[in-house]
């Protein structure tokens, strides 16, 4: 009895505190001033775009398109890698996108990675080995800032997982360079693009430090595919998706197998359960 009485008093007390000191002032402000005005906010694109027909790895039945991954690697190597590291990926991983062991060894050797001179111990650059990780273009964050207008180019190994709807975000961002709507700019000076930044309507605060990169024809694909901005965006997105999660396709394939087995086992289990309970009427 005392517990219940105490409970009622405590409950009413707590509710009173909440309603009178927190809710009431809030409601008062709301009713007198209405909803607080949202700060000037450029209507940036919340919905990312996807390439026509989607990616090969999309959906539960997706697979890697190795030709695309290799083109994407070429884009990363020739364009992105100037500023962005890919530090969780090793050259040996390239075997997973269709290169042979010897091709990987040769490819790794085209990259210079930090090393130690075996004779005098000085810090040198040496050709990469398959076991090396992709090198970072900058020695440290401070250098990265100094070279890039105070913005650190993010590592790309996980970029498609580290952003909301990351795969489509990367694809959209590559093609999102544009001019701001003059009407919006007229409304608020906040929407003017500051010097050194670039307007990109898919970037969360619309002005991005990275200049437009994938201009038509900036790479020439060895398989003869035309290097349009769209094509390169799709290719590099596919490559970065693979880089972010090399086990993606294996995961989905394993999933079908596991779910199939579970389905079979569950049906057997259900029949067994029905048999066990057959003599016990359960409901009225």
């Amino acid at each position: 009895m005392t517990i219940r009485l105490g409970g009622i008093i405590l409950g009413l007390g707590l509710t009173a505190v909440l309603l009178l000191w927190s809710l009431a002032p809030g409601l008062f402000t709301l009713t007198s001033e209405g909803f607080p005005e949202k700060p000037d906010y450029y209507a940036f694109q919340e919905e990312n775009i996807a390439p026509e027909g989607g990616f090969a790895f999309d959906g539960p039945l997706g697979t890697w398109d190795y030709a695309q991954l290799q083109r994407g690697y070429q884009v990363y190597k020739e364009v992105c890698s100037a500023c962005h590291s890919l530090k969780y990926v090793a050259f040996r991983n390239l075997e997973q996108i269709g290169y042979t062991e010897d091709e990987v060894r040769a490819e790794a050797a085209t990259w210079m990675v930090p090393g130690i001179d075996e004779k005098d111990g000085s810090v040198i650059e040496r050709p990469g080995l398959p076991t090396d990780q992709f090198p970072s273009p900058y020695a440290n964050d401070i250098e990265a800032r100094a070279f890039n207008n105070n913005a650190i180019p993010p590592d790309l190994s996980l970029i498609t997982k580290a952003r909301k709807d990351g795969v489509h975000y990367v694809y959209s961002l590559m093609q999102g360079y544009n001019e701001p709507d003059p009407e919006d700019v007229a409304k608020s000076p906040n929407f003017e693009t500051p010097p050194g930044l670039y307007f990109n309507e898919y970037f969360y605060n619309i002005n991005i430090a990275m200049p437009p990169q994938l201009l038509d024809g900036i790479v020439s694909y060895s398989d003869g595919t035309e290097a349009t901005t769209e094509q390169m965006s799709a290719d590099v997105t596919a490559f970065l998706t693979w880089a972010g999660e090399p086990s993606l396709i294996k995961r989905k394939q394993t999933g079908w197998f596991v779910i199939g087995f579970l389905l079979f086992a569950t049906i057997l289990g259900f029949l067994s359960y029905k048999t066990v309970w057959a003599t016990k009427k359960k409901k009225i």
């Binding site: 087995f261 579970l262 079979f264 086992a265 057997l268 289990g269 029949l271 067994s272 048999t275 066990v276």
Partner: peptide, 20 residues
């Protein structure tokens, strides 16, 4: 007999699952 069959099947499938 029918009962036994279904139980044996269910338990052994679960066993295979657990082992995998």
């Amino acid at each position: 007999r029918r009962r036994d069959w279904i139980h044996i099947a269910a338990v052994s499938t679960a066993g295979v699952g657990g082992a995998s």
